[in-house]
Design a binder for these strands. Structure first.
Length: 480
RNA sequence: GGCGACGUAGCCAAGUGGUUAAGGCAGGGGUCUGCAAAACCCCGAUCGUCGGUUCAAGUCCGACCGUCGCCUCCA
């Protein structure tokens, strides 16, 4: 069964076929870098990371573009998010941008999110945005008022096709007072005149100003991916107005489709409410990482479907942490036994089981990236491998290597949950040698039935965060 | 008011017409172990409510109840 992807534009799952054979062009709306990323950002970028990983696994060459918004994203108050952040921290706007861009990537790295191939900044693409705005004016889809430029929604009949809205209804529901410069309440800014004191400003044919929020994505996506391109992703919260406006701008400018497939991921919820800064109920990734490992956060995210909302609770995180431990524990013990396994051909039954699991795993992924179903298969594999590894029967090196390869491929390459080298597999150098001395001593005590002393050693190591486990193949230890 | 989504075991979460409703966490019982830990085995839901369609429905249709998102701050 080939890959199927749910397309928000058509509201159904579609067989995936890229525009160009073997090549996928993909864009995902990136963060506005004025503050630390929170769990919600983590979910979005982990969700799309899995998409990119899987497309690459299938053999596609993927160009993954994810922008950095560093200008033009306004608050209700009319303040630019970046300027507000800069004032808060008393730094240059670009200093703020640099700081939070770096911190964003650090957080993403911790979540094992593959870096985008291109991370274009809005402020670095002002000429492209101006050119796009100009083109829209020339084609009669935009108008200039007092140095600002607005998109004329009435000139573009399909406006609303993504979000299923009609322009007339938008006007009624308007949350904010309508800007009197607009001809229609639903019109949106392509370029805004800079008021005195607004530091981030660029010269344009319409005077000094700065780009609107939506235009950057249109300009940068098309610049690096062409038009049309294959996949555009983002959070559902951005479906309207952001993505709707991107589509209108780009399609009106070039009379061509913009993105063929639109993917929207679900929001992170906190107690049945969306996690959001304005609600004050958000937790930054950094705060979460103080309490749980970043990979446990990834585990929680990958454990549910990308389109579903995800309720973020301490209980769910604790459960995710334990689940990750179980997964890693299985991988770790398989790799450990691999070290001392005897030479020999791989067991046919095991190979057949691995093939079966792999097929079921891939079938789940093919079904619109059903990572929860895929993870269930991975845990079935955990049971198989744990049973095998714990068995007193000899298991050959090739058999164990095949199991490890399956973990690397499915759990590592695709889901990004199993690193090539598991962390904290041990201590290095002298410390490890000392632990081994204690383990050997304890073993002698056990053989002499001096259990009180043997248990004493185990307990004191436990207090130091070293957990001993006796197996039929000797005593192993892990850092807690 | 408009558009969209959801309601599956104590918690998280797959399943969208057809054998015994995945998987994880927690819990109970057991095996292994000097003990422990880990692991392994066994145990739990009839799928918000009420109707309808069908030989057959968490799975389709309708109503109702509850929850959430979007309707120009949002990943």
């Amino acid at each position: 069964m080939p890959l199927q992807i749910y397309n928000s534009l058509t509201r159904q799952k579609e067989l995936f076929a890229p525009l160009h054979e073997g090549r996928v062009m993909m864009y995902v709306c990136g963060p506005t870098v004025y503050d630390d990323a929170h769990i919600g950002h983590g979910k979005t970028y982990v969700n799309f990371d899995v998409v990119v990983r899987y497309l690459r696994y299938l053999g596609y060459r993927v160009r993954y573009v994810q922008n950095i918004t560093d200008v033009g994203h306004m608050l209700d108050s009319g303040e630019d998010r970046i300027l507000k952040g800069a004032a808060r921290e008393r730094v240059e706007p670009m200093e703020l941008v640099e700081r939070y861009t770096r911190r964003f990537f650090e957080d993403m790295d911790a979540l094992n999110v593959t870096r985008p191939d291109i991370s274009p900044r809005a402020s670095g693409h002002i000429p492209e945005q101006i050119a796009l705005v100009q083109r829209l004016i020339e084609k009669g889809h935009a108008y200039v008022v007092n140095g600002s430029v607005y998109f004329d929604v009435s000139s573009w009949p399909t406006y609303g096709k993504l979000s299923g809205r009609r322009v007339e209804e938008l006007i009624q529901g308007a949350r904010i007072e309508v800007n009197p410069e607009k001809r229609h309440a639903a019109d949106f800014a392509l370029w805004k005149r800079a008021e005195p004191g607004h530091i981030m400003r660029w010269p344009s044919p319409w005077g000094e100003g700065y780009p609107g929020w939506h235009i950057e994505c249109s300009a940068m996506a098309t610049k690096y991916l062409g038009q049309p391109f294959d996949i555009h992703g983002g959070g559902v919260d951005n479906k309207f107005p952001h993505h709707e406006s991107e589509i209108a701008q780009s399609e009106a400018a070039y009379d061509k489709d913009f993105a063929r497939i639109w993917m929207h991921n679900g929001m992170v919820m906190v107690g049945a409410e969306e996690m959001h800064k304005s609600l004050g109920n958000f937790m930054t990734l950094r705060q979460a990482f103080e309490r749980w490992s970043p990979m446990a956060v990834r585990f929680l995210i990958v454990g549910s479907h990308y389109r579903s909302p995800l309720d973020f609770t301490p209980e769910a995180m604790d459960a995710a942490s334990r689940g990750l431990e179980r997964l890693w524990g299985a991988v770790r013990s398989a790799r450990e036994r691999l070290q001392t396994a005897p030479e020999g051909p791989a067991d046919d039954d095991v190979l057949a089981t691995l093939e079966d699991h792999k097929a079921r795993f891939l079938a789940a992924m093919d079904d619109d990236f059903n990572t929860s179903a895929a993870m269930a298969v991975l845990f079935d594999l955990v049971r198989v491998s744990n049973s095998l590894v714990a068995s007193p029967e000899p298991v050959t090196r090739d058999t164990l290597a095949a199991i490890d390869a399956a973990y690397r491929e499915l759990g590592g390459d695709i889901l990004g949950l199993i690193p090539a080298e598991l962390p904290a597999e041990g201590l290095a150098g002298l410390a490890a040698d000392l632990v081994q001395v204690l383990i050997d001593t304890r073993q002698e005590l056990r053989e002499a039935k001096q259990y009180a002393l043997a248990d004493q050693i185990r307990k004191r190591l436990r207090d130091l965060g070293i957990v001993l486990e006796d197996t039929p193949h000797g005593t192993r230890w892990v850092k807690a």
